[in-house]
Computed example of a mutant assay.
Amino acid sequence: MQKICVIGGSRYFGKLLVERLQAADHQVTVINRGSTSPPTGVEHLVVDRNDEAALTAALDARTFDVVVDQVCYTPVQAAIAARAFAGRTRRYVMTSTIEVYDPATAALPTVPTGTPVPEESVDPANWQVAMDLPWHDDSYLEAHYAEGKRQAEAVFAHVGSFAFATVRSAHVLGGSQEFTGRLAHYAGRITQGEEVTVHAKALPTVFIHYEEVADLLLWATAADFTGPVNACSDGPLDVHGLAEIVATQAGREAVYRTVPAGVEASPFSFDRHYAMSNARAKALGFSFSRTTDWLPGAVAEALAISAAPTA
């Protein structure tokens, strides 16, 4: 049994992670702002992680074996957490994103198209941090999501008081709580016979089921690796492959409208290459599913939700 703190953990795979940690007999503490209560038996600290004094006071004399940070988006938040948890944990796992590799958001090393992008393409130990940017501005943060994650990783990478690992998740799909609406976009448009906009040379991306990323985070709490690890199911798909799976499940044909590079298209249509490699996680002992094994079921869920009558 370990003492594990989850920051966030109120929805989607974070909520599932808390349930799985508890089922594995870990002593779990959840920190969030109180919008959702954790399961019975899980300690709940209601505090805003952005308020350093309140966070430090809420932690009081508590210590943890591992902290899993589900909701760190900026270097400012990372710095607050690094100070608050210094001396309180031996290991810190941050949930990050495939978006750190997006070449449209930063000058990154070139990886040949078709070559899965490895973790060393973005080394948090060498990434520059700018605390004075307007990270507290929601519109700025939304527009600089990838850079916020890169800089948050960089802050933790230089902390000497605990071991740090970051899990860079692929696009997460599946489950009734999927809140981004990206798969629902395809379910709705294809069911209604509406056009799906795609780039002329749409490139593949990678996905992961929400249960699989929860499993990987659970695994990461017991592992001893440090640094970044990519989390994605086997088998990249481009937007056409995704849409055809939706169309098959819906019993319809997908209708496409092509747009040039640089123009906004439907979710998961990318005109740039940054599909991740999961080789490091495999070498460390984690086994991934194949995207095409679980995606039809996730699509069926999305179709059922889109077809359900609204209240």
Rank of each mutant, 00 (worst) to 15 (best):
E142A: 15
A143G: 08
A143I: 09
A143M: 11
H144I: 04
Y145D: 01
E147P: 01
G148E: 10
R150T: 00
A152S: 12
E153R: 05
E153K: 00
A154R: 03
H158Y: 02
H158S: 13
H158V: 08
V159Y: 11
A163S: 14
A163F: 00
A163W: 01
A163Q: 11
F164W: 06
A165E: 03
R168Q: 14
A170R: 01
A170N: 03
H171F: 12
V172D: 00
V172I: 15
G174H: 10
G174L: 12
G175T: 07
G175K: 02
Q177I: 00
E178D: 15
E178Y: 03
F179D: 10
F179Q: 12
F179K: 13
F179E: 06
T180V: 05
T180L: 11
T180I: 08
T180Y: 05
R182P: 07
R182A: 01
L183C: 10
L183F: 10
A184R: 14
H185S: 09
Y186F: 15
Y186H: 08
Y186L: 06
A187L: 06
G188C: 03
G188M: 08
R189Y: 06
E194W: 09
E194A: 07
E195Y: 09
T197A: 11
H199F: 12
K201S: 13
L203S: 09
V206I: 02
F207T: 02
A214W: 04
A214P: 05
D215W: 01
D215F: 09
L218K: 03
A220L: 15
A220K: 05
T221M: 04
T221P: 04
D224W: 01
G227Y: 13
P228V: 02
V229I: 15
N230D: 07
N230I: 04
A231K: 03
A231E: 07
C232F: 04
S233Y: 09
S233P: 05
S233C: 05
G235I: 04
G235A: 07
D238Y: 03
D238C: 03
V239M: 08
H240S: 02
G241C: 13
G241Q: 15
L242R: 02
A243R: 06
A243Q: 09
A243F: 08
A243I: 02
I245A: 01
I245L: 13
I245S: 02
V246K: 00
A247S: 10
T248P: 00
T248E: 15
T248Y: 06
